[in-house]
Structure formats: structure tokens, C-alpha cells
């Protein structure tokens, strides 16, 4: 039993490292070859985990092979447009200037119900509101609405806006993050002062504190239950 336990831990650690090396992508945004590899890695790790008759290396090698294949293919896709087109395909325009490109829709085997469903999921109820629709290589549809149907932006209103900065997390679960504090340009006494203004005595009593995009300090105190660790 301990053997299975240790093997599972080893393979788990390996899969985490491999997924980390493969890079950050949501499943919905993956290219087909990336999705295939993710599914295969999960399956390959499972068999040697439970079957102690299979040497651990027989699980490690295929996983490392897939990692190598994925890294090399994605690197070549980055460097070569031709290679990328072969492996990932290219985006297809299915609605052009408000007209459905029937040849593309037929070639891609998309029926009208699927297309309308995709439009509705993007909050476009009418086909007549769409200027362009592009089927991306990851299967998602990008909609560019007609000018008169798009959302209003601040530029349209002629409103002057301040440029926004990224929010900076300063405290998580009672621990100050020094790297982020340095990035914010403030120091620890300033943080303590801000916390005290929010009725929080010490850094350890803060559950979460951050500097917002408009440089305002926000903090939340730990409640009693989480302080006691209960």
C-alpha cells in the first residue's frame, strides 16, 4: 500500500512539474495539440500509479516524451508561420460584413443552429448585429459587432480617464508580501498605519489587504474562527 502511495506522489509531482513547464492556458483556450497532450498525460500517469507491476519509469518516460513534443511543437509554431498553420490551422471568417460565408460554414461543418447558439452565448441575439464572426483555431468564435451595435466606451463619451494600474496584493492571510510592498513604493510603517485606520492592529490580524488600481488601500480583518485556526 505504501508503494502505491509513494508512486502516486511521485507521479503527481511529475505531472505538476510538466504542466508547469508546458505553460499557463485555460482548457478552453488550448490549441488542439495542447489539449490532446493534457488528456494523454493524465491517462499515462494513472496506470503506473495503481499498477506496481509496471516500472515507474514506464510512466515517467511517456510523460516526458509528451512534454518534449509539446514544447518543441509550440516553439516551432512560434518561429514558423507555416508550421503553425499545419499544426493549429488558421482562423476562418464565417461572417464577413454581415454576410454568412456559406462555403466556409459548409467546409467547417457548422450548422446554422450551432452558429446562432454561439452568437447567443456571446450576447448577440440577432445575426444582423454581427459585422464579422471568426472561428478561431481553438474552436471559439470571436464576434465583431456592427459599429452601431457595439458597447459604448469612454472614448465615445469624450470622458477623460486616468490610466489604470494593476492592483497590488500586500497581505495574504496575515503575511506581508515584501516583493509587492516594494513594487507599491510604500513601506511597512505605512501599511501598519493604513491597517490601523481600518481598525486592524497588526499585519498578522489582516486576512487580505491590497492596493487598488486607483491606489486606494483596502483591508479585511481576520475573523475570530480563522485566527484560532478552527
Amino acid at each position: 500500500m505504501l508503494i502505491v502511495f509513494i508512486r502516486a506522489l511521485i507521479l503527481y509531482a511529475l505531472v505538476v512539474v510538466v504542466m508547469r513547464m508546458m505553460g499557463k492556458r485555460q482548457i478552453a483556450e488550448m490549441q488542439p495539440f495542447e489539449l490532446v497532450i493534457t488528456i494523454m498525460i493524465a491517462d499515462l500517469a494513472a496506470t503506473p500509479m495503481e499498477n506496481t507491476g509496471v516500472p515507474l519509469i514506464n510512466g515517467v518516460i511517456p510523460i516526458l516524451t509528451l512534454l518534449s513534443a509539446q514544447v518543441i511543437v509550440s516553439f516551432l509554431s512560434l518561429k514558423s508561420e507555416v508550421f503553425r498553420e499545419i499544426v493549429c490551422g488558421k482562423p476562418s471568417i464565417i461572417i464577413d460584413k454581415g454576410n454568412i460565408i456559406q462555403s466556409e460554414v459548409t467546409r467547417l461543418r457548422i450548422n446554422m443552429n450551432d452558429l446562432l447558439e454561439q452568437l447567443r452565448s456571446k450576447n448577440y441575439l440577432n445575426l444582423s448585429d454581427v459585422e464579422y464572426a471568426i472561428l478561431e483555431t481553438n474552436g471559439q468564435i470571436t464576434i465583431i459587432p456592427k459599429v452601431e451595435k457595439r458597447n459604448v466606451v469612454t472614448e465615445d463619451l469624450g470622458v477623460k480617464v486616468q490610466p489604470e494600474e494593476l492592483p497590488i496584493t500586500l497581505i495574504v492571510d496575515g503575511k506581508l508580501i515584501p516583493k509587492n510592498l516594494k513594487k507599491s513604493g510604500f513601506d511597512q510603517p505605512w501599511v501598519i498605519n493604513q491597517l490601523q485606520e481600518n481598525n486592524i492592529e497588526r499585519i498578522e490580524d489582516a486576512f487580505f489587504a491590497f492596493l487598488s488600481s486607483d491606489r486606494m488601500f483596502y483591508a479585511q480583518k481576520k475573523d475570530k474562527a480563522s485566527k484560532q485556526g478552527g
Binding site: 518516460i61 516524451t65 518534449s68 514544447v71
Partner: peptide, 14 residues
């Protein structure tokens, strides 16, 4: 770095 690490892993493996 990942590409170089991958190539090294492949060479070692072969």
C-alpha cells in the same frame, strides 16, 4: 529555458 531544458532531457533520455 524550457526549450533548452527539454532538449537536454531528450539528449539524456536517448
Amino acid at each position: 529555458k524550457v526549450v533548452i531544458a527539454t532538449i537536454l532531457i531528450l539528449i539524456t533520455f536517448f
